[in-house]
Design a protein around this nucleic acid. Structure first.
Length: 561
RNA sequence: GCGCUCAUAGCUCAAUUGGAUAGAGCAACGGCCUUCUAAGCCGUAGGUUGCAGGUUCGAGUCCUGCUGGGCGCGCCA
């Protein structure tokens, strides 16, 4: 519909150029938008406003000229000039209803496109170190990251989901010492408990499992506990595997699966850190000072230079980060999106600067970042800070267990990443109209219910009869609903392009609202066969789009509530 | 102090990416079930979009400066 209008405007434009009414050298990108207000028709363009200046004409005069030059089209019932020079288009009812037929034909693929042309994109998200259960912040990253992947897949990209973790650094040593202490019978309250040791109950679970000689299977490793409290290396390997498995289970319960688990240790084992250092030194971007090796990241937009190699000879985390991203580039990912907590935003400039210093042709501004802000969890209006299992934070598992996967995913993905999020447990649990998840799912279930009713009455949906009578969908509510359905593919495209999965959540709420309004205003199961089937078709189309949209968020679409 | 980010109805959030009279839900009030699921719908009320400038036909949206919240500013990750 929109493309049709753009094509008509293009014709009008070139006609006016031929007549000399408009300069030849203007080639505007024509923008046609759905209107907010029905009084303004179904679509509107600001073309006359944009061209007024270059054409040296008044916007309204130009609009009139454009409308006069507009070819007739069966899809448009009326055009109007309004306000300062908008051109409003009123869609012919049967043209609008075409969307119902399109959705029925395309089903699960409605809203998908091939814009990405099969290009490879890597999305790195969650990337939690295996030192404890995933917390709410990881959950937000998982919800946003995975939805982003689904959006990119829906727009034609070849997506790789990647999880990066440090299995060898100082934090892991700390974990190993904590588990060892537990294995030796200490508790976090003992004076000899490691300083900065992990104190959560899960440390005890790991120690017990280790002592019992359990075998754990994580996504990328299998380890059996050596049961020897003095073997710190064995404890470390076991603890990492144990917590990796725990995170796997959390992610699985959340409906998120990764293609690649990338270990920081592999960068050392494969000498990628060494070769990165070498390249940076050879490029002349480093210097020695105070016994450390520095990278002059200020040459590439950082606000201060960064240490690469410490006085003790070890590398800072910054260097493996650069080596890791070089590896991503070398694996052929010209598009990489890193989804992280905004508390790590300082790495963005640093990593990009390090990559520029390599001078290997990586574009400035690569990779992309999506940063999410903090999550605050409340219950009964009071902040929840602790969980028994983790001690100092609320775990993702707690939320999934308490409010369910669908609501948790929806709530964590439904807000802009860059605004802080308050996760209201009471709201997420409530089965009422103030809970948007249920509101949307209920719309889906209602359509299913109508179809069950139709089957029970021996009035099953008749596809061909419905499609012949779509013009009967002519009430305001039905037209509003069809307009909404028609917008879906564009919403998917914009949400994917802007990396904003919350736009899907917002769209679904609007769609559900339009549906509920329609449902209350227009009875589907009427006696007239043509009328009834046309309305059933609209219901089925709505159900399909809700299902497609919820799938992009990783949220289920139940047939009954 | 510097950097990043956010600020919209009493509350939680939208606003088609610069468009027309800033919209939903909750909370408040008033209606709608002998009718396909009332987990729903309809209506009333609620606003100087934090403040001050600027850009232009047009700004919640872009720019500058303030104010306030969050995060960051390690040879931690």
């Amino acid at each position: 519909m929109k493309d049709t209008i753009i094509a008509l405007l293009e014709e009008a434009l070139s006609a006016l150029q031929q007549q000399g009414e408009l300069p030849q050298d203007i080639a505007p990108t024509i923008k046609v938008d759905p209107t907010k207000d029905k009084a303004h028709g179904d679509f509107a363009t600001n073309l006359a406003l944009m061209l007024a200046k270059p054409a040296g004409k008044k916007p309204r005069d130009l609009a009139e000229a454009l409308v006069a030059a507009l070819p007739a089209s069966p899809a448009i019932s009326k055009t109007e000039i309004a306000g300062p020079g908008f051109i409003n288009f009123f869609a012919a009812t049967d043209a609008l209803a075409q969307v119902v037929s399109t959705i029925l034909d395309t089903g699960d693929t409605y809203g998908r496109c091939l814009d990405g042309k099969g290009e490879k994109v890597q999305v790195e998200f969650v990337s939690a170190n295996p030192t404890g259960p995933l917390h709410v912040g990881h959950g937000r990253g998982a919800a946003i990251g995975d939805s982003l992947c689904r959006l990119l897949e829906a727009t034609g990209y070849d997506v790789t989901r990647e999880f990066y973790y440090n299995d060898a650094g100082a934090q892991i040593s700390n974990l190993a010492r904590s588990v060892q202490s537990r294995a030796k019978g200490l508790t976090p309250d003992d004076p000899s408990w490691p300083e900065d040791g992990y104190r959560g109950d899960y440390i005890r679970d790991v120690a017990e499992s280790y002592l019992a000689g359990d075998t754990v299977h994580a996504d990328d490793r299998h380890v059996t506990g050596a049961a020897d409290p003095d073997d710190l290396d064995a404890i470390r390997d076991f603890a990492v595997a144990y917590l990796r498995r725990e995170q796997d289970l959390d992610l699985k319960a959340f409906g998120v699966a990764f293609d690649v688990y990338f270990l920081e240790s592999s960068l050392y084992e494969e000498a990628k850190v060494e070769s990165t250092v070498k390249t940076l030194i050879e490029g002349g971007h480093t210097y020695e000072q105070d016994g450390a090796l520095w990278l002059r990241t200020t040459d590439f937009g950082d606000d201060k230079d960064r240490v690469m190699r410490k006085q003790d000879g070890g590398y800072t985390y910054f260097l493996p980060d650069v080596a890791y991203h070089l590896d991503k580039w070398q694996r052929g990912f010209t598009q990489v999106i890193n989804e992280q907590g905004a508390d790590h935003h300082s790495t963005v400039t640093r990593v990009r600067a390090g990559l520029q210093a390599l001078e290997t042709g990586i574009p400035n501004g690569w990779p992309d970042y999506v940063l999410h802000q903090m999550v605050l969890v409340t219950r009964s209006g009071v902040e929840v800070k602790l969980s028994k299992r983790a001690g100092s934070y609320v775990t993702l598992r707690d939320l999934i267990d308490e409010v369910g996967r669908d609501a948790t995913r929806y709530f964590l993905a439904a807000r802009r990443a860059d605004s802080q999020l308050t996760f209201d447990i009471d709201l997420a649990r409530s089965q009422s109209n103030d809970n948007p998840v249920y509101y949307i799912q209920y719309a889906h279930a209602r359509v299913c219910s109508v179809l069950r009713k139709a089957a029970a009455d021996d009035r099953d949906f008749q596809h061909d009869l419905a499609l012949d009578n779509l013009a009967l969908l002519d009430s305001d509510q039905e037209k509003a609903l069809m307009n909404r359905l028609a917008r879906y593919p564009e919403v998917v495209r914009i949400a994917a392009g802007n990396r904003e999965p919350q736009q899907i959540a917002q769209y679904l709420q609007d769609l559900a609202a339009d549906f509920h309004t329609c449902y209350n205003a227009v009875k589907v199961m009427v006696d007239d066969d043509a009328q009834r089937n046309a309305r059933l078709a609209l219901g089925i189309a709505t159900r399909q789009v809700i299902r497609n949209g919820l799938d992009l968020l990783g949220v289920g679409a139940p047939e009954e509530m």
